[in-house]
Amino acid sequence: MSLMDLFFKRKPSAGIARERLQVLLAHERIATGHSELLAKLQEEIIQVIARHIKIDRDQVHVKLDRGNDMSTLEIDVDLPTVMPVVSAR
């Protein structure tokens, strides 16, 4: 502590720490929650398609766009012109 600090007492900083954390974690919790949801969706969508069509993992893209009023879930599946159908059992 310098001599100046004795005269100009600094404002306690714990309140700032608390506020910064609250804002940051509110965002991070949503972000990690979404990334897990997306991974799950992608996995299950691949499984459903793979039941009928032979498909590669990287042919399925799942994207979540967050808007203010509405969010969109975009599922993009690349299919070859001649579909390699999984034979019925």
Partner: peptide, 16 residues
């Protein structure tokens, strides 16, 4: 230090 507001308090951490 927590009492002086220089460190997050127990309640702050528990709240978060």
């Amino acid at each position: 230090r927590a009492a002086r507001g220089e460190m997050l308090s127990i309640d702050d951490v528990l709240d978060i």
